[in-house]
Computed example of a mutant assay.
Amino acid sequence: MRAPFQFVTASLTAATVLGLALAQGNQPVIGLITKTETNPFFVKMKEGAQKQASALGAKLMTAAGKTDGDNASQVTAIENMVAAGAKTILITPSEPKAIIPAIQKAQAQGVQVIALDSPTDPQSAVNALFATDNFKAGVLIGQYAKAAGFSGNKVAKIAMLDLSPGPLVGIARHNGFLAGFGIKGITAKTATLATAPQVVCAQDTYGDQAKGQTAMENCLQKNPDINLVYTINEPAAFGAYQALKTAGREKDVMIVSVDGGCAGVRGVQSGQIAATSQQYPLKMAALGVVAGVNYAKSGKKASGYTDTGVTLITNKAVQGVSSKDAKFGLANCWGQ
């Protein structure tokens, strides 16, 4: 794996000089900082940003944390991008509070900062946010799980395979799922991870497949009667499925997830994942780059929150929950 960011020396490297030259010319310089460079969601986001930047004649710089939650690398990336002449930085913040001082320093130097996918805490710390309504994404899979398998007398025993402590996207999806499942008193404004009697295990996965498998193994040891699994994303879902398969439980446990990536939709087709909420990182990236180019040309910054949409994908539709099938999901995975 390459270093999280290339421009790391204190002096002006050749790359930094190039960035400064571009910034002084007519080519807008835009930075993109993702949580990791291995998660398929962020890989596709980077591709979308590069495609849009090329189409609009902008220069794109990219960086990523070593792992989800790596705030230090994101701080370094912001600093180096500002030094290299970026006038707009797009970021999926790993730590919604800890990243704010670095964002404020960049903004003080005239840099527009836009969050993609994940908000800062508070959201107003950035100029704009282009993201899925993550609470709604959770609500959709919660509603689906309830209607598809637990609308009668069957008692749910739920494993929650979460993201990590802190990120608002993880809290929103987790709480949305429980609200959609019918747990009372949970809203989009609930600021901490909610729980319910039906939740018999909760583990962090950092959105990683191997960690998702370990988390599911731990949950099965704690309660082998688990019959419903919520996962923060599809890599964690595939890890959970592998653990369930090893335990001989893959056919009688429902897994629901979020992302709607191409591999995830194929998981819906194969029956590994019952339903997933599809989001559109290519759209987030494209909107961010367009906003960066507009700022470079007009001086007008983007503002507010733009909902980039979410669609429930399943091949076993249920009454009362709007959804599309896997054919639609594959045609639109990642926002293609």
Rank of each mutant, 00 (worst) to 15 (best):
A172G: 13
D117M: 11
L116D: 10
G185A: 14
L140I: 12
V200E: 00
I183A: 10
K154T: 12
M160T: 02
V200T: 11
L129G: 05
G182Y: 06
Q209R: 13
Q112N: 11
D162V: 14
Q109T: 03
T192S: 05
L163M: 14
K184P: 14
F181W: 04
F150C: 00
Q143V: 11
Y206R: 08
A128V: 02
A172R: 15
M160S: 01
K136Y: 06
I186P: 13
G138N: 03
F135Y: 14
Y206M: 07
L116A: 11
A115I: 12
A102I: 12
A188S: 15
Y144E: 02
H174L: 14
I141N: 01
A156I: 00
V169C: 10
A194H: 03
N134Q: 12
T195V: 06
G142W: 06
K157V: 05
A147C: 12
A102Q: 08
P165S: 05
D133N: 11
I186E: 07
A128R: 03
F130R: 00
Q143E: 15
A172F: 13
K157H: 10
N127V: 14
R173D: 04
Q104G: 00
A191Y: 10
V200N: 01
Q112R: 07
L161P: 12
L140F: 13
N153P: 13
G142E: 03
L178P: 03
Q123R: 13
A137D: 09
A137H: 10
A108D: 11
G182V: 06
G170C: 07
G207L: 10
V111C: 00
A194L: 02
Q123S: 13
V199H: 11
A172H: 15
A159D: 09
N153W: 09
I114H: 04
Q112I: 08
Q104R: 06
F181V: 00
G170N: 08
N134W: 07
D133H: 08
H174I: 12
V199S: 09
G207N: 14
L168S: 14
T195A: 04
D204I: 06
A137F: 10
D162Y: 09
D208P: 06
Q209T: 03
V126G: 02
K184I: 02
Y144S: 09
L168N: 14
Q104L: 07
